[in-house]
C-alpha cells in the first residue's frame, strides 16, 4: 500500500486518502462565462497520463485537506506533495 505524504499530517497509508482528479492548476475550472464546449472538456476529458502525474488527493481520514501529489501511475512512486496554490506549506 502506498504512503501518501500529507503536507499536514506526514506520510500516511493510502487508505486514508481519496483521489480527486487531476491537479487543478493544470486542469482549471473554467470561468462561468466560458463556452459550453470548454466546460464539457473540463468536466469530462482527462489527460490520463501514463507515468508522471500531478493529482489532487484528499486526506479524508485525517486533516480533510485537498492537496496535490506528484505520482507515477506506472510505478506508484510518489515524488512530492504540496498544498493547493495560495495555501502555505506547513512543512
Amino acid at each position: 500500500m502506498m504512503l501518501i505524504p500529507c503536507p499536514w499530517c506526514g506520510p500516511r497509508p493510502r487508505v486514508e486518502f481519496t483521489y480527486g482528479g487531476p491537479d487543478p492548476s493544470t486542469h482549471p475550472r473554467p470561468a462561468d462565462t466560458a463556452p459550453l464546449d470548454v466546460w464539457t472538456r473540463y468536466v469530462y476529458e482527462r489527460d490520463n497520463p501514463k507515468g508522471e502525474a500531478r493529482e489532487l488527493w484528499r486526506h479524508g481520514a485525517g486533516c480533510r485537506q485537498w492537496f496535490v501529489v506528484e505520482r507515477d501511475t506506472v510505478t506508484h512512486a510518489v515524488a512530492a506533495s504540496e498544498p493547493l496554490p495560495g495555501v502555505e506549506d506547513p512543512r
Binding site: 484528499r58 479524508g60 493547493l84
Partner: peptide, 13 residues
C-alpha cells in the same frame, strides 16, 4: 461533505 470541502478548498479558497 466531500463535495463542499472540494468546492471550498479547490474552487473558492
Amino acid at each position: 461533505m466531500e463535495h463542499l470541502e472540494h468546492a471550498l478548498q479547490v474552487y473558492w479558497p
